[in-house]
Lab assay of single mutants.
Amino acid sequence: DAPDEFRDPLMDTLMTDPVRLPSGTIMDRSIILRHLLNSPTDPFNRQTLTESMLEPVPELKEQIQAWMR
């Protein structure tokens, strides 16, 4: 099983494109984008959230890719 820090906190699946929300939570980009289609909010604190506020986490993405090899 993947380490917890590699798993999306909402869907508990392996992240492939991790992004940091303004709240500091790291999620998979595809999952948070799907959530934003229904509700333009951070799913953990209900603060306003837009796609432009998502910050890529390239170092975590590299760690996940290395773990998958």
Rank of each mutant, 00 (worst) to 15 (best):
E5K: 13
E62D: 11
T50I: 10
T13C: 15
D28A: 03
R29S: 07
F44T: 05
G24R: 04
P18C: 06
S39M: 08
L33H: 06
P3Y: 05
M15Y: 03
T13R: 07
T25H: 14
R34S: 11
L49N: 00
I31G: 04
W67N: 04
T41L: 09
L60F: 06
P58G: 08
L37E: 13
T41A: 07
M11G: 09
L21C: 05
T50R: 09
K61R: 13
R46H: 15
D28R: 01
I64D: 02
S52V: 10
S30I: 12
S39Q: 09
E5S: 12
L54N: 00
N45H: 07
I32M: 02
I32L: 07
P9C: 08
D4C: 15
L36M: 09
K61H: 07
P58V: 09
D1V: 14
L49A: 00
P22Q: 03
D28Q: 07
K61D: 04
P43L: 03
F6N: 01
L60V: 05
N38S: 14
I32F: 03
P58M: 08
E5T: 11
E55P: 00
H35V: 08
M68T: 08
R7W: 09
S30F: 11
F6W: 09
D1P: 12
Q47S: 15
G24D: 03
T25I: 15
T13I: 12
E55F: 08
P58F: 09
M27P: 00
A66M: 15
G24K: 05
A66W: 09
D42M: 02
L54P: 00
F6V: 02
A2L: 13
V19C: 06
M68V: 12
M68Y: 12
L14H: 04
D1W: 14
L10R: 04
S52Q: 13
P58E: 09
T13S: 10
F6Y: 11
W67L: 05
L10I: 11
R46M: 14
A66L: 13
P9L: 05
V57C: 13
P58C: 08
I31F: 05
W67Q: 03
M11R: 08
S52E: 14
Q47L: 10
E62C: 12
S39L: 07
I64S: 00
T50Y: 13
P56T: 08
Q63N: 08
S23Q: 03
W67I: 04
V57M: 15
G24C: 07
F44H: 03
L37Q: 14
M68I: 14
P40Q: 14
G24A: 03
L37N: 10
M11W: 10
D12I: 07
S30D: 11
R7A: 03
D12G: 15
V19F: 04
D28Y: 04
P43T: 01
R20Q: 07
A66I: 11
L10K: 05
R20W: 05
D28M: 06
V19L: 04
L14K: 02
D12C: 15
T41H: 09
M68N: 07
I26G: 00
S30C: 13
S52C: 10
V57S: 05
R46I: 06
A66S: 11
P18Q: 03
R69V: 12
R69F: 11
L54K: 01
M27C: 08
D17E: 08
